[in-house]
């Protein structure tokens, strides 16, 4: 039923439509602060600083497509995923997401440190809003995929970060989302698990699910994604074929590096020390 849904809508079979989306952070209110500071700011009437984490972002993602979002740190990639997942409401523009979105973005976390792996799966299901019984039904397959052995019944606080990542990945990909959003997940776990998770993501992509993933792994981008989006400073630089987008990204990275080296040289600092390697 869900797979037929997009056909109902005239004008396309897209899973995600992002239209001129912008996310504004007002530093005046959207900041952890103390009561004293905010009093001081109201009294002295400090102007509200604001910056746009994302601006004028538009794209459409069709069913079965796999979009890689790349760009330097702090470009707004994770913010884009948060908007798609419904965690952050855009300050302007519109987002239209058709289908179940997988909730988990970064998978290194787990849900509650005091609870066992098994209890965390149940808690995770409740957080993700699964109906009664659904997560219980999925429990065996999640336990098997996470492959934690007897650790599955031990509190999460005893887990290594790799084990947490495995559990998180198993939970997030268990519910067969229509739209899978992943943030840097492929870097998690040991080599064996990475292979396994790659296989699972490929399987999800092939199952006519749309995928949006943020990654720094350019090999993954060119190998498994059929589209890519380069974001810099909150704006889309280029969107299209992965090879082309990755090439532009590499150029820009090199330019930025060269610029930094020049600046460092101008300042009379050894570029290697300045970290502009």
């Amino acid at each position: 039923m869900t797979h037929e849904l997009p056909r109902m809508h005239a004008g396309g079979t897209y899973s995600i439509a992002v239209d001129d989306v912008g996310v504004r952070y007002s530093l005046r209110f959207n900041r952890k602060t103390t009561v004293r500071e905010s009093f001081a700011r109201v009294v002295t009437r400090t102007p509200a600083d604001e910056f746009w984490a994302l601006r004028d972002v538009s794209f459409k993602l069709l069913q079965g497509e796999s979009l890689a979002v790349i760009g330097p740190n702090g470009a707004g990639k994770s913010t884009l995923l948060q908007v798609l997942a419904g965690i952050i409401r855009p300050s302007e523009g519109a987002v239209d997401v058709r289908g179940h979105v997988s909730g988990l973005l970064t998978l290194g976390a787990g849900f509650d440190n005091e609870l066992s792996g098994r209890e965390n799966i149940l808690l995770g299901g409740a957080f993700l809003g699964l109906d009664d019984g659904v997560i219980e039904g999925l429990l065996p397959s999640i336990v098997e995929f996470a492959d934690l052995g007897e650790f599955i019944d031990v509190p999460l606080k005893t887990y290594s970060s790799g084990m947490r990542a495995r559990l998180g990945f198993a939970i997030a990909t268990s519910i067969d989302p229509d739209i899978l959003l992943l943030d840097e997940v492929l870097a998690a776990g040991d080599a064996t698990f990475r292979e396994k998770s790659k296989a699972r993501v490929v399987q999800l992509v092939e199952g006519a699910k749309a995928v949006v993933l943020v990654t720094h792994d350019m090999n993954w981008v060119t190998e498994y994604c059929n589209r890519a989006l380069l974001i810099e400073k909150g704006r889309v630089v280029i969107e299209g074929e992965p090879d082309e987008v990755v090439r532009v990204h590499r150029e820009h990275t090199q330019e930025a590096r060269a610029r930094k080296e020049n600046e460092a040289r101008a300042a009379g600092v050894d570029p290697r020390i300045a970290g502009a390697r």
């Binding site: 869900t2 109902m8 419904g86 855009p90 523009g93 519109a94 987002v95 239209d96 997401v97 289908g99």
Partner: peptide
């Protein structure tokens, strides 16, 4: 498909519009 079939599908797979 009838229009209300699409409605029932919507409850299974919510169409989430997040406008500003």
């Amino acid at each position: 498909m009838l229009p209300f079939a699409a409605m029932s599908a919507t409850t299974e797979a919510p169409v989430a519009s997040r406008n500003a």
